[in-house]
């Protein structure tokens, strides 16, 4: 940034970028080794596998009942998206537009599930779900995943709604729009970009959320990431390549969602928003 830099400054800069480079290189290595292994015939003690094949994918598909797992994952994700939209969007609107006593308390209520790691409250949550006979059911898995998603949607949407000029709503009222009309014809179209962004991020999170599904799912309603965990956990029962091909399927699914998400939102912004929200 400044006019000149001495050797110390240059070395420091090189050092910083070397750390970043080393990190990214190893990250690439980790991902590439999974992909390469999933395509290899057999790989043991050499730089690359002996040959390449795609049969591990068909193996994984039948061996892990991946079709069923994917179906559960999509069902859970879809239900969570729908649920968090229905519960989260109106709540975010209310929080963005109204001041009322106890607002800070409500904010705290919504922020806690986001900053407390799932494993900390997962076991009590699972015991409650089992208490009501929902443990191990698809409904239970959906409810568990919905839990952190609702506050997540709220905290993404509140700043988004706040930046929409409230006079737009006032104008609509002047032209005779009722509350429902206002919401449907004015607010929803204005909010659509924010809602979409929030929901795509919910999709990414739900696909990646391990702990809550792990603690609440039964054998028939595991999502992809939990199925992957069990197959890695029970390594040795199946060929590594088979596990890796499943990992690749998981990776591709979540990367597609991530790319879609990044088209809508800037990750640093989300963090910044969440940070602001916590400051309330």
């Amino acid at each position: 940034m400044f006019a000149t830099s001495d050797i110390g400054g240059k070395l420091w800069r090189i050092g910083v970028w070397a750390v970043v480079g080393f990190f990214l290189l190893n990250l690439a290595g980790i991902i590439a080794s999974v992909v390469v292994d999933s395509l290899g015939t057999s790989w043991f003690g050499t730089w690359l596998p002996d040959g390449f094949t795609t049969h591990w994918y068909s193996d994984a598909w039948s061996g892990f009942q991946l079709g069923g797992v994917l179906q559960v994952t999509l069902e859970v994700a879809g239900a969570v998206i729908l649920g968090s939209a229905i519960l989260g969007v109106p709540a975010a609107y209310a929080l963005a537009r109204r001041e009322f006593p106890g607002k800070k308390l409500v904010m705290l209520l919504f922020v806690l599930p986001l900053i407390i790691p799932p494993f900390t409250y997962g076991i009590p949550l699972a015991s409650v779900l089992y208490q009501f006979g929902l443990g191990g059911t698809l409904t239970g898995v959906i409810l568990a995943n919905l839990m952190p998603s609702v506050p997540f949607v709220i905290f993404i949407l509140v700043p988004f709604i706040e930046q929409i000029d409230p006079r737009v709503e006032a104008a609509a009222r002047v032209f005779g729009a009722g509350t429902w009309d206002l919401f449907r014809r004015v607010m929803v179209p204005l909010l659509m970009p924010g809602i979409l962004a929030a929901l795509v991020l919910v999709l990414v999170r739900t696909i990646g959320l391990f702990e809550l599904t792990f603690l609440t799912a039964g054998p028939d309603n595991q999502t992809l990431v939990v199925a992957l965990y069990y197959s890695v956990f029970a390594a040795g029962i199946r060929a590594t390549q088979s596990i890796d091909s499943m990992a690749v399927i998981y990776m591709v699914t979540s990367l597609i969602c991530l790319i879609v998400a990044l088209r809508f939102v800037d990750p640093t912004q989300i963090v910044g928003r969440a940070k602001k929200a916590e400051a309330h």
Partner: peptide, 26 residues
Amino acid sequence: NCLAGLLPLSGGSIWLDDTRIDHLKP
């Protein structure tokens, strides 16, 4: 900003009496 040293010059020089200062940090 060039005078301050916050931006590097692309050409030319800055002198304070007989001392050249454009390569100095701010």
